[in-house]
């Protein structure tokens, strides 16, 4: 019984980090109505940025947030502004612009191969990392410390994003644009700037997720792909565009993956995750926590 509880808690911890990767995806989708296929690659870029920030400056892995989050924000902002926006403008009368999805797929391939070219195929882990393998003993259970901090960072990030969307001028403008682009234009909101900012925020969140992963996960050029597919499943489970849904969806997937192996072959847990995903699509296509309409 204690094992199940321990696995559940560890599942919640890692699941919240999955949720963090999905959160960036859901923010970008909520505003641009575009599934960003490059999101896993953005996570990869975030992980490399975090890795090199720690290696080159020797700061504590979590202090890298101060560098990674703004760097990734501007990376996303200009990626959208320079590469995605022109395609968006060409398709401006389409509600869900398909060609933009193809462009994000191109960005994915380019980023993954660029990092292969620059950093090589080897798996990198942080050496002399103060967090590696550290465990917290709590009521007879062993909990991973870096995953625990990842959980805390995920919850704080989600709360901050939620607050930003509810209470700030820019946040309200982003929500308005996601609900009705043309009407938002008539309120004096420059929609292309909003897309840049939303993409920047989504990318910064991917960077934050990267920082939480680096202390206990390998960094390599195709690392994003593993999280990409999970991210899509989580976003659909939780409801596209829902902030709380992304985190909770991530936790559901994390718990299934972590508790499942107690009762069955570990490979079966994947089947359960995908089965649940299909069930949600059949029964409640707007996702477990999504709104029927939009955002």
């Amino acid at each position: 019984m204690l094992y199940v509880l321990e696995d559940t808690i560890n599942g919640i911890l890692i699941g919240s980090i999955y949720g963090l990767t999905a959160l960036g995806l859901t923010v970008i989708f909520g505003v641009l109505k575009v599934i960003n296929f490059a999101h896993g690659s953005l996570l990869m870029v975030g992980m490399y940025t975090a890795y090199w920030a720690v290696v080159l400056t020797g700061i504590h892995p979590y202090l890298a947030l101060i560098i990674v989050a703004p760097v990734m924000y501007f990376f996303g902002y200009y990626l959208q502004n320079i590469i995605i926006k022109p395609i968006f403008k060409a398709e401006k009368d389409v509600r869900e612009p398909i060609t933009v999805i193809i462009v994000t797929t191109g960005v994915w391939y380019v980023l993954d191969n660029l990092s292969l070219l620059i950093f090589g195929p080897q798996y990198r882990t942080l050496q002399d990392n103060p967090l590696r393998g550290k465990m917290l003993e709590f009521a007879g259970m062993m909990l991973s410390i870096p995953k625990f901090w990842g959980f805390v960072i995920a919850i704080v990030t989600a709360a901050a994003v939620y607050w930003f969307f509810q209470k700030t001028r820019m946040g309200r403008a982003i929500r308005a644009t996601s609900l009705d682009r043309e009407s938002a234009s008539l309120m004096g909101i420059n929609q292309y700037r909003i897309y840049n900012v939303a993409f920047g925020i989504g990318t910064a969140i991917a960077g934050i997720a990267g920082v939480t992963l680096v202390p206990f996960y390998n960094v390599f050029p195709s690392v994003g792909v593993l999280f990409d597919i999970k991210g899509f499943i989580i976003v659909v489970l939780g409801g596209l565009g829902s902030i709380g849904g992304a985190i909770l969806g991530g936790i559901i997937v994390g718990v299934i993956e972590s508790v499942g192996p107690q009762f069955m072959a570990a490979t079966w847990t994947e089947a359960i995750v995908y089965g649940l995903f299909l069930m949600v699509l059949f029964v409640k296509p707007s996702g477990l926590f999504g709104v029927k309409y939009d955002w």
Binding site: R172, R175, A176, L179, D180, S183, A184, L186, V291, Y293
Partner: peptide, 12 residues
């Protein structure tokens, strides 16, 4: 302009 059909931000 106040557009035709109100065009409110329905979920706000």
């Amino acid at each position: 302009q106040v557009p035709e059909g109100r065009r409110l931000f329905t979920l706000m």
